[in-house]
């Protein structure tokens, strides 16, 4: 992620969440989707995305599918059953984190 190191720890959660909403996605599509959703505020760098995807795949959270698109092969990622469960946990963790940070930076709001 180029614009802030603060996002770095949430990369896996962002990937899982996106895959939870879409049946299957490929790497480039993920970077574009995040860019569009955050109106360019958050850019997932290629250098961080693929290592994260491969790690999640190795952990058994993602499964892969390959299809021929145009004149090349495209690798799609989708959530496994464990991946779907883990998404719920990760999102809860993230919500908890946001709440804690809010309490710290802006105590009046809580």
């Amino acid at each position: 992620m180029s614009n802030s190191k603060l996002y770095k720890g949430s990369l896996n959660t962002i990937i899982l969440k996106l895959l939870n909403e879409h049946d299957k996605m490929y790497g480039y599509e993920i970077t574009q989707k995040v860019k569009a959703l955050t109106k360019g505020e958050l850019k997932i760098t290629e250098g961080a995305l693929y290592p994260a995807l491969h790690k999640l795949e190795a952990e058994g959270l993602l499964d892969v599918e390959v299809a021929k698109v145009d004149n090349r092969l495209r690798k799609y990622y989708k959530l496994t059953e464990t991946g779907t469960k883990e998404t719920v946990n990760k999102l809860e963790e993230l919500a908890e984190y946001i709440k804690t940070m809010q309490a710290l930076v802006n105590p009046k709001l809580v």
């Binding site: 760098t45 250098g47 693929y50 290592p51 491969h54 790690k55």
Partner: peptide, 22 residues
């Protein structure tokens, strides 16, 4: 260039680790 100064290195390294795990 969008892959950063290390180019494909991180991807290669992580992929290696992932395959070893498998």
């Amino acid at each position: 260039k969008k892959f950063g100064i290390f180019g494909f290195m991180d991807a290669i390294e992580q992929k290696g680790k992932a395959m070893n795990k498998r």
